[in-house]
Computed example of a mutant assay.
Amino acid sequence: MVSAPSAGAQECMGGSGSSAGSVMTGSVAGGPNPIPWLNGSDGRLPELRGKTTAVSHITGPRSPNDTLGRFSVLGTDLGIMWDNGSGEVLTAFGDTVGLSPNPLCGLVGDWRSNILLRSADGILSDGMNIDNSPQDRPGHSKEIIPSLKQAGIEKTVIPTTGISVGSGPGATQYINYMSVRDWGHPGEWETNASGIAVSNDNGENWRVDPLTTRPNIPGTGNENFQMGSYVKHDGFVYAFGTPSGRNGDARLSRVPEGDITNLSKYEYWNGDKWVAHDPRAAKPVIPGPVSELSVQYNDYLGKFIAMYTDAGNSIVMRTSDHLEGGWGEPQVLVSSREVPEVYGAYMHPWSQGQDLYFLATTWSDYNVMLLRTTL
């Protein structure tokens, strides 16, 4: 006979709500610990050779932003950035943990599926200062898009790209997210759907728009748009899409900026022309594996840059004159031989000129750092 778990053990098992799960879970389940010293690591920035250098930690115990003390953020990943249209950069992160509020649960807990940090720092050569964060209580970044936190139903909800439409205090913020049913083998996971969350108060509060849901159903075309990357260009929001996991091709859609939440207004690039309404028409524009894609225009090169993690787990970039195609051969920015645990590369929207700044995550300490590469 198995006895019922104690109240403390039940709390460690998690549940629904913004921070009900106090165990380390989500994309980090059974994986890294955000306290590097417990992983046999000193938590220092990697020493890179070549044109890319590590500038500063953004989150974690070694970050000058003191994200643990200010926001209860001990570990997190991704760091998807966009200009909010009003002088700030908003950065959305994935599964986030702090210190456990219950000693029976161990040292790490306080799981949130996602959080948001804000920055007005335009001088990135010495790092990226974090100014504030939406909070549900003092010193605690809140989960901005809720998840059920139930394995086999909805394990977590992860932002994949963000953008603003409009300018000034009236700008509207949009996050494209994926609802993860369950995590699988490394680099593989199963999504329920993707969708769009909307904020009219600079990311403080978000509502999920149910009319933007793209169920992950094979044969509909929506299965190829479970993760995304937004780019504003010529009055359109161009929305790249990849399947769930890290092994798919990248496809392309677009929609007038004001219609971003109206799926019936989207067009899809079929390799020759734009086709209305039908996501099945979208053909690959960047061959896979394309993992956690970030795309933006660079004024120094006069080209668009696509940055992602490739099949060898290296961070690479390609360039093109056009979003619809013509992407050049991948150039390695951070080799997996130098940093085997690196993933997720997201460009800073104010990064122009020859110095290209971007965020990336390492499994060894499950935190986000700022890097710079010279174009």
Rank of each mutant, 00 (worst) to 15 (best):
R137H: 13
E154L: 02
A197Y: 05
E223A: 10
N202G: 03
H233C: 11
D182N: 14
I158E: 04
G170W: 07
T191D: 00
K232F: 02
Q150W: 11
V180C: 01
P210Y: 03
Y230V: 11
V231I: 04
E190M: 01
I217G: 03
A171P: 10
G228N: 14
P138I: 13
D201N: 15
E143D: 08
E204F: 10
L148N: 08
I130F: 03
K149G: 10
H140D: 14
K155D: 14
I145D: 02
P169V: 12
V198I: 15
T220F: 14
G166I: 08
I196L: 13
K142H: 07
E154Y: 03
E223Q: 07
R214E: 13
N176H: 12
D234Q: 10
G221E: 08
S147G: 15
G203H: 05
P169E: 07
A193T: 10
D234V: 04
N192W: 00
S164G: 08
N129C: 12
L148M: 06
G168H: 14
Y230W: 11
I175Y: 10
S133E: 06
P210I: 04
G228I: 05
I196T: 11
G187Y: 00
R207H: 11
R181L: 02
V157Y: 05
R214G: 11
I153H: 08
T156M: 08
V208P: 05
T172N: 12
S141R: 02
D182M: 13
E143W: 01
V180P: 01
M128W: 15
T161I: 11
G152E: 12
G166S: 04
S164M: 02
G168T: 11
T212R: 02
Q226I: 08
T161D: 10
A171S: 15
G184Q: 00
A151C: 09
T160K: 09
K142N: 03
N192P: 08
D209E: 10
P134N: 09
D136C: 07
P159F: 03
H185M: 00
M178G: 12
I196C: 00
E188D: 12
D209T: 05
R214H: 14
R207K: 07
G203L: 02
A171E: 09
S141T: 15
T213A: 15
E188Y: 01
P159K: 07
L124V: 03
Q173I: 05
T213Q: 15
D126T: 15
W189T: 00
T220Q: 11
G203M: 06
D136W: 12
K232W: 07
W183Q: 00
M178I: 15
I144G: 06
W189L: 00
E190G: 00
E143G: 02
V180S: 01
E204W: 10
I163A: 13
N224M: 11
G219T: 04
N224C: 10
E204M: 09
I123W: 13
D201Y: 07
G162E: 01
R137F: 05
I196A: 04
Q150N: 12
N205I: 03
G221I: 05
I217H: 09
I123S: 14
D182H: 06
A197I: 08
Q173G: 05
M178T: 04
G162P: 02
H185W: 00
I175C: 08
E204R: 13
N129S: 14
G166E: 06
V198F: 09
P215E: 01
K232H: 11
Q135I: 13
K155G: 13
T191H: 02
E188M: 01
T212M: 03
